[in-house]
């Protein structure tokens, strides 16, 4: 039983990590809390959901990712860039505004119901590992999420443009002096963050087998924010570790303490943690505490 819980925790954690990486990348380059992250990618998830049935699911996922990418590039251009130098409060309010607009768009087009959800690419089943039966879906989710994380880490470390993103996250002016087209790169980072969020959101919906208009905020932005703070804001490693810790905490609390009061317990643990260590486990150098 414990092994099954552990596998569940790791796969939920890995899915949260995808959500948190996109969120944390945006935080890393601009030091702005992106409270619109979840609601923007939720639109992409719903687009994929609508297309499912009518076409190859992989294609539907790609289109959803493109929608998320384009939406977030637009949000960056018109809601954040004009406020880039106006402190932290204005962009945060702007982000909350975008979040509401996106959620209302979803409500307008798809309504407020909860729909059952299945991408139709994972065969539900289980495998037997030395007498312990483990669900295969969880293993698939874990593998996909980890593969994406490895690709992103390698791209950041070993490609010229990945290194450019790292420069921007340290100092925008100096990055510009290297000849990096910072505005374009920042827009692309926002876009990629949302595209990654769409994949994470879809895997999340697959795990719980439902989709509804609230997935973006409650399960996206808030989880990504918690994971980033837990792990250390502005760092990739922090986002991944924080998301894993969040997945573990949630799964273990609902397995061994109470599934009804899971969120209350997890928040209590979380708050206790940030009081003791407000900078998170692996903060980026020079990052501040939240």
């Amino acid at each position: 039983m414990f092994l099954q819980h552990l596998i569940n925790a790791l796969s939920v954690g890995a899915v949260y990590a995808l959500l948190a990486i996109g969120y944390n990348m945006v935080y890393g380059v601009l030091e702005k809390l992106n409270f619109a992250h979840g609601d923007v990618y939720a639109v992409g998830c719903f687009v994929t959901f609508s297309l499912l049935g009518g076409m190859n699911p992989i294609l539907a996922i790609l289109i959803g990712c493109c929608v998320g990418f384009i939406l977030n590039v637009g949000v960056e251009r018109f809601a954040y860039r004009p406020l880039r130098n106006s402190g932290r409060v204005a962009p945060t309010i702007s982000a909350v505004g975008i979040a509401y607009i996106m959620r209302n768009v979803i409500q307008l087009i798809w309504g407020a119901e909860t729909f059952s959800f299945d991408l139709g690419i994972f065969k539900a089943g289980s495998i037997d590992v030395g007498g312990v039966v483990i669900g295969t879906l969880q293993i698939y989710l874990f593998i996909i999420a980890v593969a994406l994380m490895v690709i992103i880490s390698l791209a950041l470390k070993y490609t010229k443009w990945g290194q450019g993103i790292i420069c921007i996250s340290q100092n925008i002016e100096t990055a510009a002096l290297m000849g990096i087209p910072v505005n374009r790169v920042i827009a692309i980072v926002y876009g990629l963050g949302a595209a990654l969020g769409v994949i994470g959101g879809l895997l999340f919906c697959q795990y719980y087998q439902f989709i509804f208009m609230g997935i973006g905020f409650a399960y996206g932005t808030m989880k990504a924010w918690m994971a980033s703070i837990w792990g250390g804001i502005g760092s990739l490693k922090g986002a991944i570790v924080g998301a894993m810790v969040l997945g573990l905490a949630e799964t273990m609390v609902s397995a061994y303490i109470s599934s009804t009061y899971r969120d209350a317990f997890v928040w209590a643990i979380f708050i206790a943690f940030i009081i003791i260590r407000p900078q998170g486990m692996f903060p980026a150098q020079g990052a501040e505490k939240i």
Binding site: Q163, I166, C167, Q170, E173, I180, G286
Partner: peptide, 26 residues
């Protein structure tokens, strides 16, 4: 034109080698 800024502004989280490579970005 290459501008070496006041206060050096090396990229602290990147290695010496990576900093030099970023100088050749263009």
């Amino acid at each position: 034109i290459s501008h070496c800024p006041e206060g050096r502004r090396v990229f602290p989280r990147q290695t010496v080698h990576e900093n030099l490579r970023m100088g050749a970005f263009v």
